[in-house]
Simulated assay, not measured.
Amino acid sequence: MLRIELIVDTRAALGEGPLWDVQEQMLYWIDSYGPAVHRCDMNGRNRCSWPLPEAVGSMALRRNGGALLSLKSGFHALDFATGDVTRIVDPDPGKPRVRMNDGKVDRRGRFVAGYMDTEDRDPLCGLFSLAPDHTLQKLDEAIICSNGPCWSPDGGTFYFADTTRKVIYAYDYDCATGRVANRRVFASFDGLRGYPDGATVDADGFLWSVEFDSGRLIRFAPDGAIDRIIGLPVNSTTSICFGGRDLDIAFVTSMARPIGGVAPKEREAGGVFAVYGLGVRGLREPRFAG
């Protein structure tokens, strides 16, 4: 039976990037404008947090401990023991109107993250891959708002959303080199109520996209057809991951900050939700290999 629970009742300005760690059996997520990294167990208990020096778009756990962050000014490392944040590289310097946004790790341990225009209107942004040896590779450009990077179960297809354009793209992905090719439209949100935001792929190869400004989860089949739509308690939903002992719980973040001067009307906005009973399982998220 489908059941939705608010497991963390926090008014996060911009809750984002939920990440379930199979090794620790813990849920991580970020508040982009907190800015901070947060962690809790599958029931929302045993919380701890790490404050950050600037806006954060996404995070990945590292194989050797700690986290990799996409902050406003580029890729950084976070030491959980000390809270220290150390800069690695700024992939696209000299653009004051952009900041790094959503990112995830591919099957070979690279971290892929893109930028967003903070005024949400011009194609100023690039999509970058950081290899374990900290080599940078630019994958795409002329993006307005990067969101929802994820891969098919075999790693051969890369999905990526430009939220402002209301489209999810699919690319051919070369796991050996990390290069992309053959970009095409996977799904358009023009006929839907909201915008594509965070996303993940389940074990059956279906893509789950969080529809921002609508409060829905949309499951797309591998051919881009809509398979299911699940309504959520708040419209300001932002991102999703699968977690829990069997990777069968969908954890969904949301935001409480106003958009266009209008604050979300729901009291639970900014909280973290758990969706039970979907009847599907997710995939284990890789750790950054560097």
Score class of each variant (00 low, 15 high):
Val210Gly: 01
Ala263Ile: 12
Ile4Leu: 11
Val89His: 05
Met116Pro: 00
Tyr28Leu: 06
Arg165Gly: 02
Tyr195Gly: 02
Pro18Leu: 00
Leu52Pro: 05
Gly57Cys: 07
Asp90Gly: 05
Ile4Gln: 01
Ala36Val: 07
Ala60Lys: 04
Ala67Met: 15
Ser214Pro: 01
Phe212Ala: 14
Met255Gly: 15
Asp117Glu: 09
Tyr169Gln: 00
Gly65His: 10
Thr86Lys: 12
Val167His: 04
Gly148Tyr: 02
Gly83Ile: 11
Thr10Ser: 02
Arg121Thr: 12
Met116Trp: 01
Ser188Thr: 13
Ala170Arg: 01
Met255Lys: 15
Arg87Phe: 09
Phe75Arg: 01
Gly290Phe: 07
Ala170Pro: 00
Gly155Thr: 04
Arg257Thr: 07
Ala67Tyr: 08
Ala77His: 15
Met1Asn: 12
Val275Asp: 03
Ala263His: 10
Leu283Arg: 11
Phe242Asp: 07
Ser146Asp: 15
Thr238Gly: 10
Leu136Thr: 11
Lys95Ser: 10
Gly114Phe: 08
Ala187Cys: 11
Leu27Tyr: 01
Val252Met: 07
Val112Ser: 03
Ala203Ser: 15
Ala256Lys: 11
Asp106Pro: 02
Tyr115Leu: 10
Gly260Pro: 06
Glu211Ser: 06
Asn46Lys: 13
Asp172Trp: 04
Phe128Ile: 09
Ser70Arg: 11
Arg110Trp: 00
Asp90Cys: 09
Asp120Ala: 14
Ala256Gly: 11
Asp117Pro: 11
Gly109Met: 01
Arg110Phe: 04
Val85Ser: 03
Ile143Pro: 00
Gly215Leu: 08
Thr135Gln: 12
Ala13Cys: 08
Ala256Asp: 09
Ala256Pro: 09
Gly282Pro: 02
Arg267Lys: 15
Gly44Ile: 04
Asp117Trp: 13
Leu217Arg: 00
Asp84Thr: 13
Lys166Ile: 11
Pro153Gln: 13
Gly215Phe: 09
Asp213Phe: 12
Leu130Arg: 04
Ala225Tyr: 09
Asp162Ala: 05
Ser73Pro: 01
Ala225His: 14
Arg39Gly: 08
Tyr159Glu: 06
Leu19Trp: 10
Asp84Gly: 13
Leu192Phe: 15
Pro264Phe: 05
Glu268Ala: 14
Gln25His: 15
Pro233Thr: 05
Arg45Asn: 10
Ala263Asp: 12
Leu61His: 02
Val98Arg: 04
Val252Ala: 07
Asp140Gly: 11
Asp9Trp: 05
Met100Gly: 03
Val275Lys: 03
Asp227Ile: 06
Arg287Phe: 02
Asp140Lys: 12
Lys138Ala: 05
Ala67Gly: 06
Gly279Arg: 11
Leu139Ala: 08
Ala12Ile: 03
Phe273Pro: 01
Pro149Ile: 07
Gly244Ser: 07
Glu211Thr: 08
Leu278Val: 13
Trp208Ile: 06
Ala250Asp: 13
Arg228Thr: 13
Phe111Gln: 07
Phe288Asn: 00
